[in-house]
């Protein structure tokens, strides 16, 4: 995947700002109009008339950031599953945090998972949200699903730590 780089076209809009757009492989055009005053619109183009936009959705700073996060996280998961096929021996696994885990309500740093197993926790799925690259201060909650990358042995180690068996 990613063999052909996607071309993002940039068009200046004098007096207004700038427009970025790209054509997807399914033939649709999506764009973002960035206004000078910081406002931005997500625009979707018409299939019948590719010059005109079907919808123009204004996004606040927070909304744009949230959207970028969701896209970034799903992109990372996609790349990880690609990585799984490419790098032999390196596995990605989704590990549900067991209900009785000692780490519920405790920060990720406390698991010392990477030091102890050399597998990395790269994302956490919480409800329907993806939290990409959680830091050491990230606090686990019940029902979290941890996405970890590592060797078979490392991943088993992470499962054990999260279940509270690895504490020694």
């Amino acid at each position: 995947m990613g063999a052909v780089r996607v071309r993002v076209e940039q068009t200046p809009l004098p007096g207004i700002g700038v427009r970025h757009d790209l054509v997807t492989s399914s033939g649709r055009t999506v764009g973002v109009v960035s206004h000078r005053n910081g406002r931005r619109d997500l625009v979707l183009y018409d299939v019948d008339d590719p010059d005109s936009c079907l919808a123009s959705i204004p996004l606040t700073d927070d909304e744009a950031e949230a959207l970028a996060d969701v896209l970034g996280a799903s992109l990372m998961l996609g790349q990880l599953s690609g990585l799984r096929q490419q790098a032999a021996g390196l596995l990605t696994e989704q590990i549900a945090l067991p209900a009785g885990s000692p780490f519920v309500g405790r920060p990720l740093g406390d698991t010392r998972a990477r030091t102890r197993t050399s597998a990395s926790i790269v994302a956490v799925l919480r409800e329907r949200e993806v939290i990409a690259s959680p830091g050491p201060s990230f606090v686990f909650e019940a029902n979290d699903v941890v996405v970890a990358v590592g060797t078979r042995q490392g991943l088993d180690g992470v499962s054990a730590i999260l279940a509270g068996d690895g504490d020694g």
């Binding site: 809009l13 004098p14 427009r19 936009c53």
Partner: peptide
């Protein structure tokens, strides 16, 4: 809602 349209840069450049 036409700021994203492709003809908009044309209009703006004439202006």
């Amino acid at each position: 809602g036409r700021l994203g349209n492709r003809e908009t840069p044309v209009i703006l450049s004439v202006l």
